[in-house]
Design a protein around this nucleic acid. Structure first.
Length: 415
RNA sequence: CGGGCUGUAGCGCAGUUGGUAGCGCGCAUCGUUCGGGACGAUGAGGUCGUGGGUUCAAAUCCCGCCAGCCCGACCA
């Protein structure tokens, strides 16, 4: 992509009224645009980043043997009446048809759709276990949208639902799902803690995946030596206390962002929808369920918060909008030709390149933009580099800079 | 949903005791610059969030509403 042909422009000034770091950087860098409180448009580069996050999540869900589906966001009131959540769920958007004849919920989560859905296909113990997931826009009327894309009223979420005949199988899958979640965060460059939390209205307990960060809304009590961690809402220990599960540790308290939440639902929803299977011995039995969520757009915001510095974003290679930020310095024909040549050769290799070909912008602005946008490698082509038959390569994360002969640079494999 | 703060040019802001609006950035044209957000010149761009009220006169004072941010409450 040529910078000069992009839709977006970066800005130097901090958006008014956006005090969260993620919103500031993502808006200034041209990744998102605010439509209204808690609702953002993903601009071309923001969509690329989100798609890369989604790809990683999808791969890990498929590794669990889950199949991807796509359920409606527009859901009939009757399904929500079946669980009683039409009247109790305060984040549920309740909308009606233009003629007033029908009422719908805009999906904040999809147990009400997925349970009757899979009930049509799972009739026997022979049909279990099964798991389906989707990646879809969710709607939640948060009383207070805040923190940029960390808490929106419309956001992208991956939700996985699993179905089991036995508790043993449910809990085994629950652990496998947790392991897959850890793989997702690791691939995204994040360190997450698995934190025991309340189960809300439909589960006895749950586990949250939390990334320690000052921008977080949650307080977690966690051991500094082992994996013990609890959300403040159910915490059984105090700061500075010895860890209840290991001899070596001390309890710390940290602010954290919830980037995932998994629930063993057991039969809560299969009861509501009378979802039972025939057992081997001919008896009927309720299906056991688990559900597992990851906020994809929130992950993007968390990464912006955690993996950034005073100059801007620092995307991990796996999800960066482009692999190389190619900068042409100067407008004379020699430099322009050399930069264009490198751009085209990288493209023909299939490398995702953002080519700053602007001729009306000075070096300082191009460098500042590169820092702000946060692509892993910055490559400069200038009179100076051409004289050395090289390009200048700078890594965004480390600042490490070097001159590399052009051919050697082109021969390197880029993700 | 309570409390606080804020709405003025595309963006960020100033605007005093009321007298019908200005700065920076950006944008357009020209010239000089050209490796960390250059400089000069010229120019375009605003029913001051919105509805009422007070007044000879309202961006400015009063009331309602809307929107945005922050704190809290809430949060499958």
């Amino acid at each position: 992509m040529r910078f000069s042909e992009q839709l977006i422009k970066t800005t130097k000034e901090i958006p008014s009224g956006e005090q969260s770091r993620n919103a500031e950087l993502l808006i200034r860098g041209g990744f998102i645009d605010k439509t209204m409180a808690g609702v953002y448009t993903l601009l071309p580069m923001g969509l690329k980043v989100l798609n890369h996050i989604v790809r990683i999540i999808r791969e890990e869900m498929e590794s669990l043997g889950a199949e991807e589906i796509f359920m409606p966001a527009l859901q009939p009131k009757e399904l929500w009446d079946a669980t009683g959540r039409w009247d109790t769920m305060d984040v549920l958007y309740r909308v009606h048809s233009p003629d007033g004849s029908h009422e719908f919920g805009l999906g904040p989560t999809h147990e009400e759709v997925v349970t009757p859905l899979v009930k049509k296909f799972i009739l026997s113990y022979r049909d279990l276990p099964r798991a389906v997931f989707q990646i879809q826009t969710k709607f939640r009327f948060e009383a207070r949208a805040k923190s940029g894309i960390l808490r929106g009223r419309e956001f992208m979420m991956k939700d996985l639902y699993s179905f089991h005949a036995t508790e043993t199988d449910l809990l085994a899958y629950y652990e496998r799902a947790a392991a897959a979640y850890f793989r997702v965060y690791e691939r995204l460059g994040l360190t997450a803690l698995k934190v025991r939390a309340s189960g809300g209205a439909f589960s006895d307990f749950s586990h949250e995946f939390q990334v320690i960060a000052d921008c977080g809304e949650d307080l977690i009590y966690h051991c500094d030596a082992c994996e013990f961690a609890e959300n403040k809402e159910i915490a059984t220990c105090v700061e500075g206390a010895p860890c209840p599960t290991c001899a070596a540790g001390t309890i710390r308290v940290s602010k954290a962002v919830e980037v995932g939440n998994i629930f063993p639902l057991y039969n809560k929803f299969s009861d509501a929808f009378n979802f039972a299977i025939k057992n081997q011995d001919g008896t009927d039995q309720k299906v056991l369920m688990g559900c597992y969520g990851i906020g994809c757009t929130r992950l993007m915001g968390t990464i912006a918060e955690v993996l950034s510095d005073e100059n801007g974003l620092v995307w991990p290679q796996q999800i960066a909008p482009y692999q190389i930020h190619l900068i042409q310095l100067g407008a004379d024909d020699t430099v322009a030709e050399a930069a264009k040549d490198i751009y085209e050769k990288l493209q023909s290799k299939g490398v995702a390149v953002l080519f700053d070909d602007r001729t009306d912008v000075k070096a300082g602005e191009k460098f500042a933009d590169a820092d702000l946008i946060g692509i892993p490698r910055r490559v400069v082509v200038s009179t100076k580099t051409i004289q050395a038959a090289s390009v200048e390569l700078k890594y965004r994360a480390t600042g490490e800079t070097s001159l590399i002969p052009v051919q050697q640079f082109l021969d390197e494999p880029y993700v």
